[in-house]
Deep mutational scan, measured.
Amino acid sequence: MTFKLIINGKTLKGETTTEAVDAATAEKVFKQYFNDNGIDGEWTYDDATKTFTITE
Protein backbone atom coordinates (compact mmCIF):
# COMPACT_ATOMS: atom_id res chain seq x y z
CA MET A 1 0.00 0.00 0.00
CA THR A 2 1.07 3.56 -0.62
CA PHE A 3 1.04 6.01 2.27
CA LYS A 4 1.44 9.77 1.85
CA LEU A 5 3.12 12.29 4.15
CA ILE A 6 2.21 15.98 3.97
CA ILE A 7 4.76 18.25 5.66
CA ASN A 8 3.64 21.68 6.88
CA GLY A 9 6.88 22.74 8.51
CA LYS A 10 8.40 26.08 9.32
CA THR A 11 11.36 25.44 7.03
CA LEU A 12 10.32 22.31 5.13
CA LYS A 13 7.07 21.91 3.21
CA GLY A 14 6.03 19.27 0.75
CA GLU A 15 4.82 15.74 0.24
CA THR A 16 6.39 12.32 -0.01
CA THR A 17 5.14 8.75 -0.19
CA THR A 18 6.29 5.35 0.97
CA GLU A 19 5.25 1.80 0.24
CA ALA A 20 4.47 -0.20 3.38
CA VAL A 21 2.50 -3.26 4.44
CA ASP A 22 0.49 -1.28 7.00
CA ALA A 23 0.08 2.13 8.66
CA ALA A 24 2.31 1.20 11.61
CA THR A 25 5.21 0.41 9.29
CA ALA A 26 4.66 3.63 7.31
CA GLU A 27 4.56 5.55 10.59
CA LYS A 28 8.01 4.22 11.54
CA VAL A 29 9.42 5.22 8.14
CA PHE A 30 7.94 8.72 8.38
CA LYS A 31 9.06 9.21 11.99
CA GLN A 32 12.61 8.37 10.92
CA TYR A 33 12.23 10.91 8.12
CA PHE A 34 11.10 13.52 10.70
CA ASN A 35 14.12 12.78 12.87
CA ASP A 36 16.57 12.82 9.95
CA ASN A 37 15.28 16.22 8.83
CA GLY A 38 14.91 17.82 12.27
CA ILE A 39 11.13 18.12 11.99
CA ASP A 40 9.19 18.20 15.24
CA GLY A 41 5.50 18.89 15.46
CA GLU A 42 1.99 17.62 15.79
CA TRP A 43 0.98 14.93 13.37
CA THR A 44 -2.18 13.12 12.41
CA TYR A 45 -3.18 10.14 10.31
CA ASP A 46 -6.27 9.77 8.12
CA ASP A 47 -6.96 6.09 7.50
CA ALA A 48 -9.48 6.78 4.73
CA THR A 49 -6.84 8.49 2.58
CA LYS A 50 -3.78 6.76 4.10
CA THR A 51 -2.26 10.20 4.68
CA PHE A 52 -0.04 11.35 7.52
CA THR A 53 0.26 15.11 8.14
CA ILE A 54 2.86 16.81 10.31
CA THR A 55 2.58 20.46 11.29
CA GLU A 56 5.41 22.30 13.03
Rank of each mutant, 00 (worst) to 15 (best):
G41W: 15
M1I: 14
E56L: 15
F3A: 01
D47P: 13
T55Y: 08
E27A: 11
Y45K: 00
G14D: 08
K50A: 05
E56C: 14
I7C: 11
G14E: 11
E27D: 03
T25G: 07
G38V: 13
K13Y: 11
K10P: 09
L5S: 01
V29N: 07
A20M: 02
T55E: 06
I39T: 05
V29Q: 10
K31S: 05
T49S: 08
E56F: 14
A48V: 10
F3H: 01
K10H: 13
K13H: 09
G38F: 14
F3L: 01
G41Q: 05
E56H: 06
A48C: 07
F30M: 03
A24L: 09
D36C: 10
I39P: 04
A20S: 06
K4I: 12
V21N: 09
T53V: 06
E42C: 10
K31A: 05
A24C: 10
G38M: 11
D46S: 04
N37G: 09
N37C: 15
K10A: 11
K28Y: 09
F52V: 01
N8M: 13
E42Y: 12
K31T: 05
T18I: 15
D46Y: 02
A20N: 03
T2L: 12
E42F: 11
G38Y: 11
D40Q: 14
T55R: 05
T18V: 14
I6D: 01
T51Q: 02
N35A: 14
K13T: 09
V29T: 08
I54V: 14
G14F: 15
T25D: 07
N35G: 12
N8A: 07
I39S: 04
K13V: 10
T16A: 13
L5T: 02
L5M: 05
Q32K: 13
D36A: 12
D40A: 11
T16K: 13
E19H: 13
Y45P: 00
D47M: 07
D36T: 10
D46T: 03
V29P: 00
T16Q: 12
T49Q: 04
A24Y: 09
T11D: 10
F30K: 00
G41E: 03
I7G: 02
E19G: 03
T11H: 13
T55K: 04
F34C: 15
D47Y: 06
D47I: 07
V29S: 05
T51A: 03
G9E: 02
A23C: 10
A23K: 13
N35E: 13
G9F: 15
F52S: 00
K10D: 06
G14V: 14
A26Y: 01
E27P: 01
K50R: 13
D46A: 03
Y33I: 09
T11Q: 08
N8H: 10
V29L: 11
L5H: 00
L5A: 09
G38A: 11
G41M: 11
Y33A: 05
A23F: 09
F30T: 00
Y45G: 00
N8S: 07
A26S: 01
A20V: 04
T49D: 03
T25Y: 06
T18M: 12
F30Q: 00
F34T: 15
T2S: 08
N35R: 14
T44V: 08
G9Q: 06
A26L: 02
K28N: 07
T18L: 14
M1C: 11
F52K: 00
T16G: 08
A23N: 03
E56V: 15
I6T: 03
E15S: 10
W43Y: 05
D46C: 06
E27T: 04
V29C: 07
W43S: 02
E56R: 04
K13W: 12
T25S: 12
V21D: 08
K28F: 09
T55F: 07
A23P: 07
K28I: 10
I54Q: 02
V21W: 10
T17N: 04
I6W: 03
T2Q: 09
I6M: 04
L12S: 09
D22S: 05
G9Y: 14
E42S: 08
F3R: 01
N37V: 14
V29G: 03
A20G: 03
T44A: 11
D36N: 11
T44G: 05
I6G: 00
I7T: 03
N8W: 12
T18H: 05
F52I: 01
I54P: 00
D22L: 02
K31M: 11
T55G: 04
T2E: 06
I7N: 01
T11F: 14
T55M: 06
E19P: 03
I54H: 05
K50Y: 08
A26V: 02
W43P: 02
V21E: 08
G14W: 15
G41R: 04
K13I: 11
I39Q: 04
T2M: 11
T17L: 07
T53A: 04
E27S: 06
T2N: 05
E27Q: 08
T51W: 01
